[in-house]
């Protein structure tokens, strides 16, 4: 295993796992706590529209994905109530709209879209130095925002109406968090792909939530479980010679099941006289 670190792609993969786990741990805890996991699903699939358009015009697909993701996040956060469409319906529309745009433009692009599969299912071993720079930038940005306004993020996520009665501007922080969520989705697309990004952002925080019921303590645990999933998935992918996106998702779910069983057994033991 050690000799693998001689390969640059493997080192990149490990670094990507660490950096992605940081942003996922923070943002994942936020979306799981606020119960907006499906908003994230909508954002990630809407991002595919951006990938398709970028392909067609020969631009950087990740930049296209980021553009679409941020726009759809802002639409979901701000429009839902104003245009009187129910939120889940709006998510469904954005979700399918993005996919339809993506499919159309990829079809219109001459030639074979070779690494399209990379965007749908991710590949942690093809992460470039540029990608790593983006991941590091996002990880630092997310950490800084949480340090800067931790209490406000928590209180607004818990009870935005109460925050408004305290005369606190709610939409500023809420929009900032949605943009960070969109960017985290896009960066994750490199690692596990559009189809599987939901797993990496929800399973580790959900696992953490089995053990602790406090936002503050959930974050480091979610980072830890995310790290376990990405590194474990990377190793499994190498050993079994199968796509890394899938092994990362399986590892995260296995960790969830394992922790869940431990928690149940522990409670049963406690209950016994």
């Amino acid at each position: 295993m050690i000799e693998l670190f001689q390969y640059r792609y493997f080192v990149h993969g490990v670094l990507a796992a660490v950096l992605v786990s940081v942003s996922c741990g923070f943002i994942g805890t936020y979306i799981v706590s606020r119960r907006i996991v499906f908003i994230t699903g909508g954002i990630s699939h809407a991002a595919f529209g951006g990938v398709g358009i970028a392909y067609f015009f020969g631009l950087n697909p990740l930049a296209g994905a980021a553009f679409f993701a941020v726009i759809s996040a802002v639409v979901l956060e701000s429009m839902g109530q104003r245009i009187q469409v129910r939120e889940d319906s709006l998510i469904g529309m954005l979700w399918s709209f993005g996919m339809a745009v993506g499919v159309l433009f990829v079809f219109l692009t001459p030639g074979y879209a070779a690494n399209l599969m990379t965007f749908l299912f991710g590949d942690i071993l093809t992460v470039s130095g540029f990608d790593l720079g983006l991941m590091a930038g996002l990880a630092v940005l997310v950490c800084m925002v949480f340090m800067w306004r931790f209490h406000r993020i928590l209180y607004l996520a818990f009870d935005p109406e109460f925050a408004r009665t305290r005369n606190v501007p709610v939409s500023g922080i809420q929009s900032l968090m949605m943009v960070l969520t969109a960017l985290t989705v896009v960066v994750n697309i490199r690692v596990v792909g559009i189809v599987l990004v939901l797993a990496l952002m929800t399973v580790p925080p959900a696992t953490a939530n089995l053990l602790v019921k406090d936002f503050r303590s959930m974050i480091p645990l979610a980072v830890l479980f995310s790290l376990t999933a990405t590194l474990g998935g990377l190793a499994a992918s190498h050993m079994l010679n199968v796509p890394s996106g899938a092994t990362i998702v399986f590892t995260s779910l296995l960790v969830f099941l394992f922790v869940r069983v431990i928690v149940v057994l522990f409670r049963r033991k406690q209950r016994r006289p």
Partner: peptide
């Protein structure tokens, strides 16, 4: 209010002090 939101009693009470300029 979502009863399963991961937040402690102390944090809920402290949120009553938040104000425009910070806590």
């Amino acid at each position: 209010v979502d009863p399963d939101f991961p937040i402690t009693v102390a944090d809920i009470v402290r949120s009553g002090l938040m104000s425009r300029g910070g806590n």
